[in-house]
Computed example of a mutant assay.
Amino acid sequence: MHAQEIIRSIEAEYQKKELPEIHVGDTVKVGVLIQEGNKERVQPYEGTVIAKRNGGISETITVRRVFQGIGVERVFLLHSPRVESITVLRRGKVRRAKLYYLRDRVGKATRVKQRFDRPL
């Protein structure tokens, strides 16, 4: 067995099977496990996916939202045990792979058109 095959077989154990199909431009709600003292709770983080990176175990999505007038971006490792759930709330109709141009936009200009041909 080659080294790459061994690595893939080990990674396969840690990959999540029940992830939804996520595309750039989608509005998603990510449930993140937050530890406060000795208690854990799930904190929802809702925003637009502006970038997707890599594949396999190290796949990440960058989610952007505006909180109290300030744009906040957060990168989530999809297969991380800290990410409890990901729900797609609406599909976005975009024509590029990275939506970094949304960083320069303010207010209603940051909206992404909704796409209806893909199921949620």
Rank of each mutant, 00 (worst) to 15 (best):
V94T: 14
G37K: 06
A3Y: 13
L33H: 03
I10K: 05
R103D: 14
R82V: 12
D26V: 01
R105M: 15
H79C: 08
F116Q: 11
I22M: 09
V28W: 10
G55W: 01
R103I: 10
E46P: 00
G25E: 12
H23T: 01
R91A: 11
A51H: 11
T60Q: 14
L89P: 06
A51E: 14
T87M: 06
R115M: 04
L33S: 03
Q15R: 14
F76C: 07
R95H: 11
I86R: 09
E18P: 00
Y14P: 02
V42I: 15
T60E: 13
R41F: 15
K29D: 08
R90Q: 10
I7P: 00
G31E: 13
Q68R: 15
V94M: 09
E84V: 10
T27E: 15
R118Q: 13
K29I: 10
E73W: 05
K17G: 15
I22N: 09
V94S: 08
A109P: 05
L89I: 15
E36L: 04
Y100A: 01
Q4W: 10
G107N: 15
A3T: 13
A3C: 09
K39P: 00
A109K: 15
T62V: 08
I70N: 05
I61Y: 07
V75I: 13
R96H: 05
L33G: 00
E5F: 05
V106I: 14
E84G: 03
G56R: 03
V88R: 07
L33N: 03
L33M: 08
E11V: 01
K113W: 05
V106L: 13
R82E: 13
V32T: 07
R90M: 03
Q35M: 07
V88K: 06
G25A: 12
R74P: 00
T27F: 06
A3H: 15
V24N: 10
K108I: 12
G37R: 05
R82L: 09
E46C: 06
I57S: 06
I57P: 04
K29Q: 13
G37P: 06
A97K: 14
G55K: 03
V66S: 11
Y101C: 04
R41L: 13
L120M: 15
V49W: 12
G47A: 07
L33A: 04
F116S: 14
R8Q: 13
V30W: 08
G56F: 03
T60R: 15
R41V: 04
I50C: 07
L120Y: 09
D104G: 01
R96E: 15
R41C: 06
S85K: 01
R74Y: 05
V66R: 13
L120R: 14
Q35L: 03
V106F: 12
I7A: 12
Q114V: 04
K113I: 01
F76S: 08
